[in-house]
Amino acid sequence: MKYAIVILCIVISTCIHAQVEHNFEMEPSNTNCHELPEKFNSPSQAIDAVEKSTFRFTQSIKISRYHSPKAAFYYSCDGKTGYMIVTLKDDSRDIYKNIPQEVWDQFSNTNDPIGYYASNIEKKYESIQ
């Protein structure tokens, strides 16, 4: 009886783990972010397309009312890289592609997001033009 319970637990945990990996490798359910094009005609077209899509992971932060960036938004389809949209102090917006999740996490958790953005994102990643 003990062996049957142990075997049953192993089988159930293996099935649950296999299902999670299977769903992650496949296109996430209820998302359409995998349908976004590789290139956009303009930053505004890219921002519009990203904001209208559904993603596996989205997060936003408000930073400042008077400095750039004022706010930032992160959208990731695969949980590894994603799009980052920043609202600048003149209310214009920039969009960056292929921002690693780790960079977003560091940016959103730093005590100086304005400085982090200037030195680690704005200067290292090219915005969509």
Rank of each mutant, 00 (worst) to 15 (best):
9 C>R: 14
125 Y>I: 07
94 D>V: 07
43 P>M: 00
45 Q>K: 09
99 I>W: 02
6 V>K: 04
40 F>N: 00
129 Q>D: 10
91 D>G: 13
71 A>C: 13
121 I>W: 04
103 V>T: 11
118 A>W: 03
95 I>F: 02
89 K>W: 06
68 S>H: 05
91 D>F: 11
32 N>Q: 00
27 E>M: 07
122 E>V: 06
127 S>F: 05
29 S>V: 04
122 E>I: 07
102 E>C: 04
104 W>K: 02
124 K>L: 12
31 T>H: 01
79 G>Q: 06
89 K>N: 11
49 A>I: 13
41 N>T: 00
79 G>L: 03
7 I>T: 11
57 F>S: 12
76 S>D: 02
34 H>A: 04
51 E>S: 08
86 V>I: 06
69 P>M: 02
106 Q>L: 04
80 K>D: 09
20 V>H: 11
78 D>Y: 00
26 M>K: 12
22 H>L: 11
32 N>T: 02
120 N>S: 09
71 A>Q: 13
55 F>A: 08
90 D>V: 15
20 V>K: 10
56 R>V: 09
13 S>E: 14
15 C>D: 15
69 P>F: 01
103 V>E: 09
118 A>M: 03
22 H>R: 12
16 I>H: 09
28 P>F: 00
10 I>R: 12
92 S>K: 15
81 T>F: 05
85 I>Y: 05
89 K>I: 05
94 D>C: 09
32 N>F: 00
72 A>I: 01
82 G>I: 04
66 Y>Q: 09
121 I>N: 07
87 T>F: 07
119 S>Q: 06
16 I>T: 12
69 P>W: 00
17 H>A: 12
76 S>C: 04
36 L>S: 04
51 E>M: 09
13 S>Q: 14
56 R>Q: 11
38 E>F: 03
11 V>H: 11
28 P>R: 01
9 C>F: 12
113 P>H: 01
69 P>N: 02
21 E>I: 15
51 E>L: 07
27 E>V: 12
67 H>Q: 10
16 I>L: 07
39 K>Y: 01
37 P>W: 03
108 S>Y: 01
56 R>Y: 08
25 E>S: 14
18 A>V: 07
38 E>T: 06
58 T>G: 15
79 G>R: 02
39 K>D: 03
17 H>Q: 12
32 N>H: 00
21 E>A: 15
63 I>M: 03
98 N>F: 02
123 K>E: 08
31 T>A: 01
90 D>S: 15
35 E>F: 04
58 T>R: 15
14 T>F: 13
110 T>C: 02
9 C>H: 14
108 S>Q: 00
47 I>C: 14
27 E>Q: 10
40 F>Q: 01
36 L>I: 04
99 I>G: 08
7 I>C: 10
94 D>M: 07
53 S>H: 05
109 N>Y: 01
85 I>P: 10
17 H>C: 13
23 N>K: 14
64 S>I: 04
40 F>I: 00
